[in-house]
């Protein structure tokens, strides 16, 4: 039988290295999502506010993020700004900046959507019961906003994890890059390793993203 090259996986520290690469991907996503949630909350609240200028600025920002491929942003930040401003930005820092720039726009829009989707009657019936403004937000508005946001932000995490495969283009060694390196190193001894390793990478992405997206689906149903 033709070897699938899976033996390579268990040679030396190869599997551990792969997991290490996966952790890089997950780490970048988690840090970026954490930053995005904080900044996105601020942006979302500001977007529901009165200032037209701010709203226009955020609209433009959102459009730019949506239109621009992430890879272009990565190149601009990692190769472009380091040259122009002469600062020393690691590839991981660049990746986090770009992913947060993207995530903040998405989160901001999600927060805005969640806030405006809560009907005015929810504020009013709570006020009519004698709740103070602080209590209205604490017990009535925020719990509903968060329930709407959690599944959506979980989706954002999985999309980010998938998109992290791009960071090898700016020299980061994440799971896909590790797989490539292992394949290169074993080109002679097991030429079929590409199949086995990339299949394993696929399974790893699946193992991470599937539970997360199931969780999102579950929460969505539970809190609908």
């Amino acid at each position: 039988m033709q070897s699938l090259g899976l033996d390579v996986l268990f040679k030396g520290k190869n599997f551990v290295r792969l997991l290490g690469g996966l952790w890089v991907a997950v780490r970048i996503s988690l840090i970026s999502v954490a930053i995005s949630i904080v900044l996105g909350l601020v942006m979302g609240v500001l977007m529901t506010g009165k200032s037209r200028v701010l709203k226009a600025v955020f609209r433009v920002y959102l459009e730019i993020v949506r239109i621009m491929p992430q890879i272009v942003l990565l190149f601009v930040v990692y190769f472009g700004t380091t040259r122009v401003f002469g600062w020393d930005l690691s590839s991981e820092a660049s990746a986090i900046i770009v992913f947060s720039f993207w995530g903040t726009a998405e989160m901001g829009d999600l927060v805005r959507g969640a806030l405006i989707s809560i009907p005015r009657i929810q504020y009013e019936s709570a006020e009519a019961l004698g709740l103070t403004t602080g209590q209205v937000y604490r017990y009535v508005i925020l719990p509903q906003t968060v329930r709407r946001l959690i599944p959506l932000s979980i989706n954002l995490i999985t999309r980010m994890i998938k998109t992290t495969s791009l960071v090898m283009m700016i020299g980061m060694v994440e799971v896909l890059k590790v797989a490539q390196q292992i394949i290169e190193a074993n080109r002679k001894t097991s030429p079929n390793a590409a199949f086995g390793l990339f299949a394993v990478v696929m399974l790893l992405y699946f193992a991470i993203c599937w539970p997360i997206s199931r969780l999102a689906g579950y929460l969505e149903k539970r809190w609908a």
Partner: peptide, 28 residues
């Protein structure tokens, strides 16, 4: 002053009992 509105103004994230208890517990 108690008020009941035309459209359903219950809090969707709270059970019936918790809807009723929110104000007595937190306000009173």
């Amino acid at each position: 002053i108690g008020m009941v509105f035309q459209s359903y103004d219950l809090f969707p994230h709270k059970s019936i009992l918790e809807n009723i208890l929110l104000a007595p517990l937190k306000v009173q």
